[in-house]
Write a protein that binds this DNA or RNA. Structure first.
Lengths: 143, 143
DNA sequence: CCTTAGTGTAACTATTTTGGTTACATCGGC
DNA sequence: GCCGATGTAACCAAAATAGTTACACTAAGG
């Protein structure tokens, strides 16, 4: 399937900031996070910008700039992260509109849309079960 | 997100064949199906080839060739279709492997993979709830 | 002030996925 | 053998995703 890695990267970034702050640091830079994630700092900043708009992270500019969490890790679920960064749905309907003269072509869109709504709801329910605190706990356990 | 339309098209194709057969026809051609879906016949054949391998559809060659269902619509769930055509997972881990020296970089992969397994399981459970018979009923209701 | 480290964001490129198209070998009933 | 279809490879186009460069802007600290 599509398979994008944004949720993974975003969770990684926030978890990294959370751990860094717990170790006594004020802010984390996109450069530091990018090193851990193994990508370009701009990729991190773009994601954190969305997370910031969603109220999950905050940035500070000027000298001593960087990123910090807007809430504790325990107060951020993967659903929060998902909603902050994923615009589209998991499944798409037809790229080109099917033949409206055909009964199936006419009715299949709404029928599938209803199913997809339920699937997305289930997916969200599942993502809501895990907080970044849970993720960090697993991470530390594995170390 | 990714958003591919394969599941939609595959469900459309099978439902179309099912209805066509109920109306007394032996087989449906990829050309007919493609007209209803509004795409190229090869796209349909490619999908039906996978559905055939999964035991959901059968093809006949030579003169009077075409496609038929291998099972009744009521015996095919959207999960069956999904598994027949979707290879990869919904969410991907890091594209490049994160810094293994970093605790978070080291442990985040397995941690997220565990969550993603649960999410996929929920998604499958949800898809299994709907059969193509259900889809056809909705389609006919909308007509 | 003015230096400086880092954010914010646009613009461009590369890679991958997805879907559409052409082409043609093959099959099998008539 | 003819003919209408499948089966598949090969190629192309478009879109999504991620990586990169570039640079204006911000604000603490000297």
């Amino acid at each position: 399937m599509s398979a994008n890695s944004r949720l993974t990267i975003a969770a990684h970034a926030l978890t990294w900031i959370g751990l860094y702050q717990r170790r006594g640091h004020e802010v984390a830079t996109s450069e530091q996070i990018a090193t851990s994630v193994n990508t370009n700092p701009v990729v991190i900043r773009r994601l954190l910008a969305k997370l910031s708009k969603a109220g999950l992270a905050d940035s500070r500019r000027g000298a001593g700039a960087g990123w910090m969490l807007a809430r504790d890790l325990a107060a951020i679920t993967l659903l929060d992260v998902y909603q902050a960064i994923e615009p589209g749905p998991v499944f798409a309907l037809h790229r080109a509109t099917p033949d409206p003269e055909c009964i199936v072509g006419h009715g299949i869109g709404p029928a599938m849309a209803a199913v997809y709504d339920d699937v997305e709801a289930a997916l969200r329910r599942e993502l809501a079960k895990t907080t970044l605190e849970d993720v960090l706990r697993d991470v530390l356990k594995a170390a």
